[in-house]
């Protein structure tokens, strides 16, 4: 990876985001560009992959290579890219609906597979792009959506717990209200081998205006990241979802099949068919 002397702003594409004023995703965009600049990873050696949703627009707003795919399938695109191009730094950005609902199985399988990519989920507990429906992380009694006027009445999904159970090698939480802190967590996630999962609390000021208050609740986790899954499980199960920082760091090796060109020629493959 070539060293660069670029500043965070040099990682932005200059395209104006579609986001509402005050959207938490501005802070996340800023955190991502800060992290890349801090790590001196060249924009052309980086790929940012996403699916569909407000936060999935990020690839267009950064000056790296990017892929804006279909809803829920960002992780498989990133998996195929990283396995075939291990030289690249691969980030995946998206929202809670994209990642945990339509893409939920890919989330679990990506944790299991442990390819060396960093997955940043901007969690605002709502579908913003389709104008305010409940997502997997929405509380069961949230009744502000026309689709579920009596609330969803189903339990919310706890992504960090699922990530741990599924085998993610790095689990962290950050807040868009503190881009500097989020940048540090992202940098650490990029540097950690294997699949790094980072939940960033990123308020939707339009459909969940009460989330503006989140910045008052968030606080650093009082303890260092554990490497013990049992401790991490206890912490994540009892956590109030506002502790920030790196919460678990595993030591599994990344999944990376050998992709070296092999001298065995194609003709050898044909021998088995000859009579």
């Amino acid at each position: 990876m070539a060293n660069t002397e670029l500043k965070a702003k040099d990682y932005k594409s200059g395209i104006k985001p579609v986001w509402c004023a005050g959207c938490g995703d501005f802070g996340v965009l800023s955190a991502i560009t800060k992290a890349l600049a801090g790590l001196k990873i060249a924009p052309h050696d980086t790929a940012v992959i996403s699916g569909i949703g407000c936060s999935s627009r990020i690839p267009a707003y950064v000056n790296t290579y990017g892929f804006h795919g279909v809803h829920g399938r960002a992780l498989p695109i990133a998996t195929g890219l990283k396995i075939s191009r291990p030289d690249l730094t691969v980030l995946v950005t998206g929202g809670d609906g994209d990642g945990f609902s339509i893409g939920g199985n890919h989330f679990m399988q990506a944790c299991r597979r442990n390819v060396d990519i960093t997955y940043i989920v901007m969690d605002n507990q709502v579908y913003g792009m389709t104008k305010g429906q409940a997502s997997p992380t929405t509380d069961a009694d949230w009744d502000r959506s026309k689709l579920t006027p009596h609330g969803t009445n189903i339990n919310p999904f706890y992504p960090l717990v699922v990530a741990l159970a599924s085998g993610a090698n790095f689990i962290a939480r950050a807040s868009s209200s503190n881009p500097g802190g989020a940048a540090e967590v992202i940098s650490e996630g990029i540097n950690h081998p294997g699949f790094s999962f980072i939940q960033i609390l990123s308020p939707c000021v339009t459909f969940r205006p009460e989330q503006r208050e989140w910045k008052k609740f968030v606080r650093p986790a009082p303890i260092d990241a554990t490497t013990d899954p049992t401790t991490a499980a206890r912490r994540l199960m009892t956590d109030d979802n506002f502790y920030l920082g790196v919460l678990y760091k595993g030591d599994r090796a990344s999944f990376q099949p050998d992709f070296e060109e092999n001298p065995a020629s194609e003709e050898n493959l044909e021998e088995e068919f000859k009579l």
Binding site: F67, G69, V70, I77, L81, I83, S84, H106
Partner: peptide
Amino acid sequence: LASVNQLIGASFG
């Protein structure tokens, strides 16, 4: 769903 998207990722690379 994953297999076709993995192809797209690898081919993009």
